[in-house]
Design a protein around this nucleic acid. Sequence first.
DNA 1: TTTCGGCAGAAAAGCCTCGGTTGCGAGGC
Length: 585
Amino acid sequence: MARSNDEVAALFQEYADLISITGGDAYRARVYEKAARSIGGHHAEVSTLDTKGLQAIPNVGKSIAEKIIEYFQGGSVSAVEELRAKIPAGVRRLTAIPTLGPKKACVLYEELGISSVEELADAIHEERLRDLKGFGPKTEENILHGIELLQSSGDRVLLDVAMDLAEDVVAALSGARGCRRCAYAGSLRRVRETIGDIDVLAAATKSGPLMRAFTELPYVSEVIAHGEKKTSVRTTKGLAVDLRVVPPDSWGAALQYFTGSKAHNIRTRELALHRKLKLSEYGLFDTESGDKIVSGTEEEVYARLGLPWIPPVLREDRGEIEAGLHDELPDLVQESDLRGDLHTHTDLTDGLAPLEEMVAAAAERGYAYYAITDHGPNLYMQRMTDERMLAQREQVRELDGAYGRHGRREKQDRRGGMRLLHGVELNIDPDGEVDWPEEFLDGFDLCVASVHSHFNQSREALTRRLVRACENPYVDIIGHPTTRILGKRPGLDADFDAVFAACERTGTVLEINAHPDRLDLGDEDILRAKRHGVKFAVDSDAHSTLHLADMRYGVGTAQRGWLTKDDVINTWTLTRLKRFLRKGR
DNA sequence: TTTCGGCAGAAAAGCCTCGGTTGCGAGGC
């Protein structure tokens, strides 16, 4: 289930927004924002901490610690409630519209009484914003565009949110009386980047106890449908979860059916028809006699269709049936194949944890190597300087090999400890240039380069910009190549086939950024890039020790792009990786 | 509101660019 830290972080983020909307002190708003970020990234559950433990979290002092205690004791914070009472929830939702911040939301509410996204859209169409100071025709256009973007993501949630909930539901139901098997299916099992609703499947001879346990879960706010075979609920966060209970001997067919995708299932049913069989969620049947042939496991079902078991991540009708028939399914990269992480941050720039904590946490994951890649100076807000970067390099050299698999610092013998690479995340400027000249870049073991601003250049300019970055002999990896933020910002409008070709030509690696907000590159782009012969790096882009675990989502995305171990450079040995990174230098 | 350095209160809090309007809000990681 979601950690208490996420709840508290969301609460303080809301408080910060409300302070801004009500015209409160901007610095106070920032303080709560910072605290929210620190709490969200803190390793220990805040619900278990006392005042002293809470104040040990950076950016949390006496006042914020008291509010956290108040929250866990009474379920709410009076200061937050006071502001909530002043501002309708819809007004804050307005700030979710890109280009519309707290100041504009405040004007809209105070001048026109607008308190929902729908009312705002109506007001624009009725041209009621025209008389407001600070609102011109271009602003109207941007807001409408933002609303479109917001609504196109609909009620879908990010992968990690759905995964946390699904794993909790499965764990709870697995312990219920009579439950023989339980698993999540659907798009979540296929590791799609966003999830509409969660499908959970359970096997039991009697469904009653399971259905009851399901509806009684603490975060269920509404039971939409309640039957013998299927129950649908909505959680307090508005996410829909379906539970289907099937007889144990139908498990395989049901899991196959409810995992989908629809397109994949249409193909498997066609295959069945050719073999005079009928495939449904209840099993694989002989069409003429109606006898059930198999349905106990997915492997059996696929085998009777003449196919090997197909990993759920491939079940999109993107060639997996044909590949399966010819025994050419890829041997997909696994999370356990990863030997290291090549894009991570520390609190020297915008990360939350100090270098040594990040290194210790990475070592605990069993990595053989680990790259620290804080931001370069051109991302001005991070205030990086040559001196700070070089000082960090000394610290990195000091810690190189000092941490073993157990995540503790070795006293003497450093051989076999996790190796560290000192890297940087460079900023690709509008012309495709990066932060430092070649002489300085030469001192890094690894350079990631990413676009962080100027997203709206022309297609030609963006393409040229990315290609130039690839052509820089010191740029090893292009970080989050499309720079999309799921549900918030579309990817760059560049000719990515030209970029992929440049990557192949220059030996530049494309990142698969594992952060659930990004998952960038996405599966479709990975498939295209792979056809160009490009190599990939699956990176966490961790800004706290907790983010290191996001790697699973990056690996899932890589698998959806049909990648094998050999396609992903951070599965390679350090020797092979280093040789490769020397690139054209 | 936190942090710091000294036990009370001052200082600091990310900085720059863009875009839409003419002094400023929003956004980037």
